[in-house]
């Protein structure tokens, strides 16, 4: 276990290093950041001065090293626009994003796992067909469009739920359902095929022939083994969730990290975009490492080298 944690830490550092290189150079090579910062009326000389002030006059490699050295200590530089540390802006929004992600993941799991099991047990029945069709539909639908349709139905016509912002607790319902549906669609498909795989295994047949109740067979023998592929997909889906939340947060004006990203991208506030991208990558990697640890708990046979 200790070896596993150490090797994973090394991997994390390497991956984050690559992410930082990619993020830094994509944003820096795409245009002169100073032209975004400087007001139109600035003279050549003033622009030069400003360039020096922000450190953009140094060679790119040196700028990168300075960036990494500061980033390690949590200093991502100041937002060009808000004139406050980018880190501070991100932390302010993070709570909202986590709340939305957790609510969506909870909806996704509670819908997908029972439906996936049901679908596998009643394979090729009408119910299976309906569940599979719904999940295909949920995968094909653009999530922001589903969000807009929910606004039309529940906010505009029924006037039941708020469509924008995060001022009251009810406001989380529509955005989290929007993201949860997409997640459930993808997960239920996986649950179904994982269950089908497991239901054909010898140990399930043995459990059945022992005369165990259907419920015990499913919950104790089948589902527990099917959980491993389901959790893998869940981990990858969280990446989809993080991505989807960017657009959905912007539809619902949810004050999370995603909206901060979109706002910052549209005004080219590169320090915030840079920090945000690194943050997304870090959380995605950490979530997937947590999932690796869950594997060990679920399946003692898995031993990490």
């Amino acid at each position: 276990m200790r070896g596993f944690i150490i090797s994973r830490m090394v991997q994390l550092v390497v991956t984050m290093f690559i992410v930082s290189v990619v993020v830094f150079f994509i944003l820096r090579l795409s245009g002169d950041p100073i032209l975004v910062l400087a007001p139109d009326f600035f003279s050549e000389e003033q622009i030069e001065q400003m360039r020096k002030f922000w450190g953009f006059d140094r060679p790119l490699g040196e700028q990168y090293i300075t960036f990494v050295r500061k980033a390690i200590t949590g200093d991502f530089g100041k937002s060009y626009l808000a004139k406050r540390p980018a880190m501070e802006l991100i932390i302010e929004r993070l709570g909202y994003s986590w709340l939305l992600a957790a609510a969506s993941a909870a909806i996704g799991l509670t819908v997908a796992i029972p439906l996936g099991i049901l679908s596998a047990l009643k394979r090729n029945s009408l119910l299976d067909l309906i569940i599979t069709a719904m999940s295909s539909l949920g995968t094909a639908m653009p999530n922001f469009w589903l969000g807009l349709m929910l606004i039309i139905i529940f906010s505009v016509h029924l006037r039941l739920l708020p469509a924008f912002g995060a001022l009251e607790p009810k406001a989380i319902i529509l955005p989290s359902v929007t993201l949860g549906v997409g997640m459930a669609a993808r997960l239920s498909r996986m649950t179904r095929s994982a269950m089908l795989e497991v239901l054909n295994q010898d140990y399930v047949r043995t459990a059945r022939s022992k005369g165990l109740m259907q419920k015990t067979v499913i919950m104790r023998h089948a589902l527990r083994n099917a959980l491993i592929p389901i959790i893998t997909v869940f981990g990858l889906q969280l990446g989809w969730l993080l991505g989807g939340s960017v657009v959905v947060e912007s539809v619902f004006s949810w004050p999370g990290l995603g909206r901060l990203m979109i706002d910052s991208i549209s005004v080219r506030d590169n320090t915030v975009v840079q920090a945000g991208l690194l943050f997304y990558a870090l959380s995605f990697i950490l979530i997937n490492y947590a999932i690796d640890v869950i594997y060990i708990i679920l399946d003692p046979r898995i031993k990490f080298q």
Binding site: Q11, V14, T15, M16, F17, I18, V19, V21, V22, V23, I26, L27, S30, G31, G239, W240, L242, G243, G244, V246, V247, M261, I262, I265, S266, R268, N270, V273, L277, Y280, A281, L282, F284, I285
Partner: peptide
Amino acid sequence: RIVDGLLAIPFIILVIAISGVV
């Protein structure tokens, strides 16, 4: 390793960031 690094950034966010700057 390069692929791992790129995969860590959700696809749509990467695309949004690049089209924002390009």
